[in-house]
């Protein structure tokens, strides 16, 4: 059976990388706090993707072991998005 989790983790990491690069490029042009916080949020998702990718290949019980750090990274990213939404332009 194809490992759906492997496929999804690879895809998540790649998409997060693309979106983070686009957001960083946008910040490079706009230089606003809002866009920077947005880019940081996407970067955190990319870091989460990298973390899950490493765990996927080194830890047999990776899903259980990485649950808490992954949720923590999600919260940091959501916090960053929230800060972007409420920050003054």
């Amino acid at each position: 059976m194809v490992s759906v989790a492997s496929l999804a983790t690879g895809a998540l990491t790649a998409v997060a990388l693309v979106v983070a690069l686009v957001a960083l490029r946008a910040w490079w042009h706009a230089r606003t706090t809002k866009v920077l916080l947005l880019a940081l949020g996407f970067l955190v998702f990319f870091v989460k993707g990298l973390f899950l990718s490493v765990m996927l290949f080194i830890e047999p019980r990776w899903a259980m072991e990485s649950l808490v750090p992954a949720v923590f990274l999600d919260l940091v990213a959501i916090g960053s998005f929230h800060a972007a939404a409420v920050a003054r332009a």
């Binding site: 492997s6 496929l7 983790t9 690879g10 998540l12 979106v19 996927l56 290949f57 990776w62």
Partner: peptide, 21 residues
């Protein structure tokens, strides 16, 4: 469901997403 990683499946997922996004 959360079995150990398969390198080729992982690479395929990353490549498809990289192209699609």
């Amino acid at each position: 469901f959360f079995t150990e990683g398969e390198p080729w499946v992982y690479a395929t997922g990353a490549l498809v997403a990289l192209v699609a996004a």
